[in-house]
Design a protein around this nucleic acid. Structure first.
Length: 300
RNA sequence: GGUGCCAUAGCUCAGUUGGUAGAGCAACGGACUGAAAAUCCGUGUGUCCCUGGUUCGAUUCCAGGUGGCACCA
């Protein structure tokens, strides 16, 4: 029997979690989360981790199994999730991946080029350089060290330039030499399914969900991690807005409004990303039977 | 019922001494290989309330209507 990874994705708030459970139960399998924020054990309300009931209904992996203090990234996810998936395939023919983190999904489906983790000190030094000397100085440095990448990189995006520089400086080899531009092949086949619905309905769902999170105590959850607000894991919709409120930059009402707006924008960004992927088959969130039929037809 | 003010983008509003319009916010489109819920780029989306009148030309001026607000009854 061929092994198949079914990827269920879509914008935030569309209903991936509950639909994923239906599908996983139908195929009597387990769920591997591909959500870059639900992996953190310190976060639960703001990341909308599955409820206890949902976790009991189907075995989930990669839910709250890391700490915000780790420097987690897509490459580590590739390594860890892939190993897990290989193991699960020993007892299952179908595995369901559920989540909306675009790059994490790509890391599993296509892979990320092998290169070292960024050195913390080098990154901090480059950040400081950006602050004091400006983006132009980083650009010039990149132009010298890695003219090839300089030609293709978004020269207005500091994160991209810093990353290329930190890898180049650290390894002594240009960043572009690590970029193969080739997708890795996987020893299993992949079916990609994405959910979407009318934009207005999605926005309403997002607004409603944010209100529910606030009712469930999102502010207190954010307060608990506030002392660690500089961590990358907390540069996240649903938390950064509270930090701004705690710092007296915005009102509580404004924070809630911004969480809604930023969630909407995140959803749009996700849709843009998945639209580009021709392997993705789109469904509405109320089509579990159609989705199951589609998966079964694909497997045959 | 009377008088006055207002009516322009999804919202709040600016503006055109008459040549079909622009800000903020919201929204929308896009990029993406180790920070990705990150980071970055781009885009006004409009029966200027309706109907007549004046005019070469009206969103702008005039009249009436409709709706909203305020005050007086």
């Amino acid at each position: 029997m061929p092994k198949t990874l079914v990827v269920l994705t879509g914008p935030t708030g569309i209903g991936k979690t509950s639909l994923g459970i239906k599908i996983a139960r139908h195929f009597n399998t387990e769920i591997v989360s591909s959500d870059s924020r639900q992996i953190f054990k310190e976060l639960s309300i703001g990341t909308a981790v599955p409820t206890k009931e949902e976790l009991n209904a189907v075995k989930h992996h990669f839910i709250q199994n890391h700490s915000i203090t780790e420097n987690y990234n897509a490459s580590r996810y590739e390594t860890e999730a892939l190993e897990l998936i290989e193991n699960l395939f020993k007892k299952k023919d179908i595995i369901l991946m559920v989540g909306g983190s675009m790059l994490y999904i790509d890391a599993i489906c296509k892979g990320i080029d092998v290169m070292p983790d960024a050195d913390h000190e080098i990154r901090e030094a480059l950040k400081k350089q950006l602050e004091t000397e400006g983006l132009e100085s980083l650009r010039l440095q990149l132009k010298k060290i890695d003219p090839e990448y300089y030609r293709t990189v978004d020269l207005k995006n500091p994160n991209r330039i810093i990353h290329a520089l930190e890898i180049s400086i650290q390894t002594g080899k240009p960043y572009s030499s690590f970029r193969s531009n080739k997708a890795k092949t996987r020893p299993f086949s992949i079916i990609k399914i994405a959910l979407n619905c009318d934009r207005q309905i999605l926005h309403n769902r997002i607004d409603l969900r944010v209100d529910m999170m606030v009712e469930e105590g999102l502010e207190a959850e954010a307060r608990r991690v506030y002392p660690q607000k500089q961590l990358n894991a907390l540069n996240t919709v649903g938390y950064r807005e509270w930090f701004a409120h705690f710092d007296r930059e915005i009102t509580r009402e404004k924070a809630i409004e911004l969480i809604k707006r930023n969630s909407r924008r995140y959803a749009r960004k996700q849709i843009t990303w998945f639209k580009k992927d021709e392997a993705v088959q789109w469904f509405a969130p109320d089509q579990p039977h159609e989705i199951i039929n589609y998966i079964e037809a694909q497997i045959k």
